[in-house]
Design a protein around this nucleic acid. Structure first.
Length: 597
DNA sequence: GCCGTTTTCGGCCCGACTGTTTTCAGTCG
């Protein structure tokens, strides 16, 4: 059987080996090694097969000499003899059962053995029949409750997996709950936790931490949050509710003197925490959500900073806590000084309601209102980059439209700046489709009227990576094009980004001083964080834009900043941290492909 | 099986919860 060897498939295979070893009561740490490798592969930012192509499998943390040899065999022949010998004698059905919540390797094996289920095909249906007939409760170590749990897990598996929330949605929901709780005087400190605090593009559940001396007061307040549909847990220190809209919200309380350890622990990530605990252990301590434990007792921490300091390193920003080198960097005092929202000096991707027959959606708000808002934010410049006119317009009509827009913006530059000290530069941009053949949807003559252009892909995403790379590079090959808009085209939850040879694109952009956009639009957040990090490593400049189609959307920029931070970006990597005086130089078309750096 | 600012050998993360138990194994985050 031909199986695609993507990371998910490889991770699953390694998990299965770990489960098989567990049943065989192999060395505990050998099992953990396979589990860790499985997680590492699952979380890898590129396809492991590509790493293998480049002969650097052992660069993946958790993959050593032995596993590299096995994976090499897997990629060459499609199977691994060593794994096959580990699987020998075990019922294939047990690996199906691992997907059931509450069922691990031992339980899965026991169920297969006792119920006589061997084949993977139809295994779940057979298990369900047995459980419904009351046969599971009769098995040793099982009871009525575990049979019931099993049936529930079987039912849950049939339902589609719970969807993760987009970051913006989760953030705004959490803010509502935080504002509600913060009114309670018993709440001394309050913070979001987990992937929300780490600002990942999607968030599962919302977790909130509270420092308080009166946990009961806070918990009582929490479970009566308006919109609560069900209280799942109401304990002495924690609580869990489900909202009418379906989201699950956890609350964790801690006394102020130990709040730092709680915050750190539940912010994760899991891999980051494991790594920290290993470091604590080498120093003779044991790290947990309560603090650092020694024989003498537990040392508490009121804040995270002092906890990280006790472990011998400066505080690490939550966005970096994925165990992808941030702990090593912190130990060496080499953490990047991450970009912050107030470093941003302007926004070059705005869609106004300027009337014309456009190729895609128009904005909703008038230009002058957006300029006013930009000035309130404190921007030094902003650029209107509506979609290019529809190609059903004649070339003549197109040029007329763009000339009319240029004149409008010229007037606006005058009227908005005439009676004020605080000047704001308004730019005439355009977001232009890159057609499948790599051509821009606007003529050269029209391009001359612009201050700059954003080139983007808005249709025909299904292309081979090679063809897509050629398309993008051709689209960027014009002196007026300064930005590649939402570079991967992904739409979170609905559309994977297209694949392309990013190294080639990085190198082109670096040479030609073209900037990759970090689009802050909630469904996009594109470039994704892991590609931001690659771009930064490659010396490519980025620009964080809101892609606003309405006035209020200028406020979405912080989510783009979050993506940049997750990608280890510093102010120097982000072009719109430059003041207007410097940016204006960079916007001038380059001659002969030379770099201005 | 992995890994190295005390190690190429000898270590390897922590605690909560649950069910079926009379002290713990398995699972999970």
């Amino acid at each position: 059987m031909k199986v695609t060897l993507n990371n998910q498939a490889i991770s699953r295979l390694l998990q299965q080996v770990a489960a098989a070893l567990e049943v065989q009561q192999a060395d505990r740490f050998r099992i953990i090694a396979y589990q860790r490798a499985a997680v590492a592969v699952e979380h890898a930012t590129a396809e492991i097969k590509d790493w293998w192509d480049e002969g650097r499998l052992t660069d993946v943390p958790g993959i050593g000499k032995a596993l590299a040899t096995h994976l090499d065999e897997l990629f060459r022949t499609g199977k691994v003899r060593h794994f096959a010998s580990i699987f020998r004698g075990l019922p294939p059905a047990m690996f199906v059962f691992l997907d059931l919540s509450g069922v691990g390797a031992k339980t899965a094996y026991k169920l297969c053995k006792e119920l006589g289920i061997k084949r993977a095909t139809g295994a779940l249906a057979r298990l369900e029949t047995a459980a419904k007939a009351g046969k599971v409760r009769q098995l040793e170590d099982f009871g009525e409750q575990s049979e019931k749990d099993l049936l529930q897990a079987l039912a849950a598996l049939k339902k589609p997996a719970k969807k993760r929330m987009r970051l913006v949605f989760a953030d705004q929901l959490a803010q509502k709950i935080i504002n509600y709780l913060a009114r309670n005087p018993a709440v001394l400190k309050i913070d979001p936790l987990g992937s929300l605090r780490r600002q990942t593009a999607t968030v599962g559940d919302i977790d909130i931490a509270v420092a308080t001396q009166k946990p009961q007061t806070v918990i009582k307040n929490f479970v009566s949050f308006p919109g609560t549909k069900k209280i799942l847990i109401q304990g002495s220190k924690t609580a869990r509710i489900v909202l009418a809209t379906g989201q699950q919200v956890d609350l964790k309380t801690q006394s102020p003197d130990a709040y730092g350890a709680l915050l750190q622990h539940f912010t994760g990530s899991k891999q980051h925490n494991i790594h920290l605990r290993e470091i604590a252990q080498k120093k003779g301590w044991s790290l947990s959500e309560y603090g650092l434990k020694r024989e003498a007792g537990t040392k508490k921490f009121a804040d995270e900073k002092s906890l990280y300091q006790a472990l011998g390193m400066p505080w690490i920003p939550p966005e970096l806590r994925e165990d992808t080198g941030e702990i090593e960097a912190s130990l060496k005092h080499q953490l990047p000084k991450l970009i912050q929202l107030n470093d941003i000096k302007g926004d070059l991707h705005l869609h106004s309601d300027f009337k014309f027959k456009t190729s895609h959606d128009l904005g909703e708000s008038p230009m002058d209102s957006m300029v006013k808002k930009a000035r309130e934010i404190g921007y030094e410049y902003l650029g209107f980059s509506e979609h290019n006119p529809s190609t059903t317009n004649t070339q003549k009509q197109m040029i007329k439209i763009i000339r009319r827009k240029k004149e409008t913006i010229d007037k606006l530059n005058y009227s908005m700046n005439k009676n004020t000290q605080k000047q704001i530069k308004i730019l005439n941009g355009l977001e232009i489709d890159i057609k499948t053949n790599g051509q821009l949807a606007v003529s050269d003559e029209a391009l001359k009227l612009l201050d700059y252009a954003i080139a983007s892909v808005h249709a025909h995403f299904q292309m081979s990576p090679k063809a897509m790379t050629a398309r993008l590079l051709a689209g960027l090959n014009h002196p007026k094009v300064k930005i590649l808009g939402h570079p991967t085209g992904r739409q979170i939850g609905t559309r994977e980004g297209y694949e392309a040879d990013w190294e080639k694109i990085f190198s082109f952009c670096r040479q030609r001083d073209i900037w990759l956009e970090i689009n802050a639009w909630p469904e996009r957040l594109d470039l994704p964080d892991f590609l931001v990090r690659e771009a930064v490593k490659n010396g490519v400049k980025l620009i964080i834009n809101s892609d606003s189609h309405a006035l209020s959307q200028l406020d979405l920029l912080p989510y783009g900043v979050a993506v940049a931070r997750r990608g280890w970006a510093q102010p120097k990597d982000i072009i719109n941290t430059l003041p207007w005086s410097a940016l204006s130089v960079r916007l001038k078309p380059m001659k002969g492909g030379e770099s201005t750096k």
